[in-house]
């Protein structure tokens, strides 16, 4: 029983972490058809921004609960600034290129941002563990879990709900869906696709930065953390079906649970789990679990 609860909790916590990272990635792909490797940099910028903002804030002697707002603020500011700069300054010159070329463009951005981060923050690790330890822990079947991690599950669910609501229940979201399904027709019908692209990219960047900011309290923020999460996020998104938010959720859950099962039952398999799951899903659903229908070229 203890084992089952541990497996479930670990799996869901890991999945909620994965989902926050993958959500922005899949959104950007869905709308813009860009598999954005620079998403890892957004994550890193969020983490660095969050850690240093929390550091400044707490050094000023303000009430500690405000640190959570610092994390959110860092994500919002960092994601918006970097997202706008990259989309307006660079990507718009490249629209219409091959998907592969766009991957490489975002890879180049990742390389550049990696060094920009180093120039701003240096290579020494940053810590902001106060928000992580402040909430204490909960005992479940004899096992302690950090309340911060449990909170992360709810935050992740909230993000998922907001994205679903925004896409399906608002006018702007419906317009965005039109762009996702057929960019040219949408433009033809008078939707300002360029604006949509900018807004989507900024939202995606903020989500990426948010993932980093939310992760920062539990880790040591250091160079290279962004690169590490990209492939994880790619795998989740591919399993779920590129461009689908629901797919990212399901992909994150599958990967999270499979990984935690491996860690508890057969630790040697931990490294293979994610690729094994991806292979298995693709073998049966070559386009991922929730693929967006595309027209065939004849």
């Amino acid at each position: 029983m203890k084992l089952v609860i541990a497996m479930l909790m670990d799996g869901v916590i890991y999945a909620s972490w994965l989902f926050v990272i993958a959500a922005g990635l899949t959104l950007i792909y869905g709308v813009m058809r860009i598999l954005n490797m620079a998403h890892g940099s957004f994550y890193a910028i969020g983490a660095y921004g969050g850690a240093s903002l929390v550091g400044f804030y707490l050094a000023g002697g303000y009430p500690p609960w405000g640190a959570y707002f610092m994390l959110l603020g860092a994500a919002l500011i960092g994601g918006t600034v970097v997202g706008l700069l990259i989309e307006r300054g660079l990507l718009r010159m490249m629209y219409g290129r091959d998907e592969v070329v766009m991957i490489l463009v975002t890879y180049a951005i990742l390389l550049i941002l990696e060094d920009v981060i180093k120039l701003i923050w240096g290579v020494d690790a940053y810590f902001a563990y106060q928000p992580y330890t402040l909430l204490g822990r909960t005992k479940l079947a004899g096992l302690s879990f950090a309340n911060y991690d449990i909170l992360l599950i709810f935050v992740s669910a909230l993000i998922c709900f907001v994205l679903w609501w925004g896409l399906n229940r608002t006018r702007k979201g419906k317009l965005l869906q039109a762009v996702i399904h057929d960019r040219d027709t949408a433009a033809f019908l008078g939707i300002n696709v360029t604006r949509m692209f900018t807004v989507t990219f900024v939202i995606g960047a903020v989500l990426g930065a948010l993932a980093g900011a939310l992760t920062a309290p539990g880790i040591s923020v250091m160079p290279g953390i962004g690169v590490e999460v990209i492939i994880l996020a790619f795998a989740v998104v591919v399993i779920g079906g590129l461009g689908s938010v629901g797919g990212a959720l399901l992909g994150a859950l599958i990967v999270g649970l499979a990984r935690s099962a491996a860690v508890h039952l057969y630790p040697d398999a931990e490294l293979f789990v994610i690729y094994g799951v991806m292979g298995l899903v693709l073998a049966f659903r070559p386009q991922g679990l929730f693929a967006i229908a595309t027209a065939r070229k004849i």
């Binding site: 490249m94 070329v101 463009v105 890879y107 180049a108 550049i112 060094d115 180093k118």
Partner: peptide, 20 residues
């Protein structure tokens, strides 16, 4: 030695932009 990744990234961007 400290920012070689940036040089590579910029070179790649320049090539993609001007020599597609």
């Amino acid at each position: 030695p400290y920012t070689w990744q940036m040089i590579l990234g910029i070179a790649l961007l320049v090539i993609i932009l001007y020599l597609p």
